[in-house]
Simulated assay, not measured.
Amino acid sequence: MARYKNRKGLFDSKAPLFVQRFEAGQAAGLCGGTYRYVTWGQEILAEENEVLPAFGQHENNTPGDVELWRVLVFPQPIHRNWPRIECHAL
């Protein structure tokens, strides 16, 4: 579970990015940030265009699991128009 000390630096968002799922082996696209592995909760930091890892035979995976990641937190891009941000995988 991601943790934080001070909520002041975080903003609630309804960005479509938070409902998207990214497959393992897929690039994070334009959405660097903190990602959570959907099946068992492993969290990672990924930079823009970084490939999201696969866990394959990990003990917490069951046969047939689709390896999916979702975004928990992403930084406010300075170089983009903030109100219009929509991150999509490349």
Rank of each mutant, 00 (worst) to 15 (best):
Ile85Phe: 14
His88Cys: 14
Phe74Arg: 15
Glu48Val: 03
Ala54Glu: 09
Tyr37Trp: 01
Trp69Ser: 04
Arg36Val: 15
Ala27Gly: 09
Asn60Tyr: 08
Trp82Gly: 09
Val71Thr: 00
His79Lys: 15
Ala2Thr: 05
Leu30His: 12
Val19Lys: 15
Tyr37Ala: 00
Thr39Glu: 03
Ile44Arg: 01
Ala27Trp: 02
Lys8Pro: 02
Pro63Phe: 12
Gly64Cys: 09
Asn49Leu: 07
Gly29Cys: 01
Ala46His: 07
Gln26Thr: 15
Gly29Asn: 00
Glu67Gly: 00
Val73Phe: 03
Gln76Met: 14
Thr62Glu: 09
Thr62Met: 04
Trp40Met: 07
Gly32Cys: 03
Asp65Phe: 09
Ala15Gly: 07
Val73Ser: 05
Arg3Cys: 12
Asn81Glu: 08
Trp40Ile: 14
Arg70Tyr: 15
Glu50Gln: 06
Arg80Thr: 13
Leu45Val: 14
Phe74Cys: 12
Pro63Thr: 06
Gln20Val: 13
Thr39Asp: 02
Pro75Lys: 07
Gln76Val: 14
Leu68Cys: 02
Gly9Trp: 10
Asn61Ala: 00
Pro77His: 13
Asn60Ser: 08
Asp12His: 10
Ile78Gln: 08
Glu23Val: 12
His88Asp: 09
Met1Thr: 15
Glu59Tyr: 04
Ala15Asp: 05
Gly25Cys: 01
Pro75Ile: 12
Ala28Val: 12
Ala89Arg: 12
Gly9Pro: 09
Phe11Ile: 14
Gln20Asp: 07
Ala15Tyr: 06
His79Met: 09
Glu47Arg: 14
Cys87Tyr: 09
Asn81Arg: 11
Asn61Gly: 00
Val51Asp: 03
Phe11Ala: 07
Leu90Gly: 09
Ile44Glu: 01
Ala24Phe: 03
Trp82Ala: 10
Arg70Asn: 13
Val66Phe: 07
His58Ser: 00
Ser13Tyr: 13
Arg21Ile: 13
Lys5Met: 08
Leu52Pro: 00
Glu50Lys: 05
Leu52Met: 05
Val38Trp: 04
Leu17Ser: 07
Asn6Tyr: 13
Asn81His: 13
Gly33Ala: 10
Gln57Thr: 08
Val38Gln: 11
Gly41Ala: 08
Gly56Pro: 00
Asn81Lys: 05
Arg21His: 15
Pro77Ile: 11
Gly56Asn: 01
Met1Gln: 04
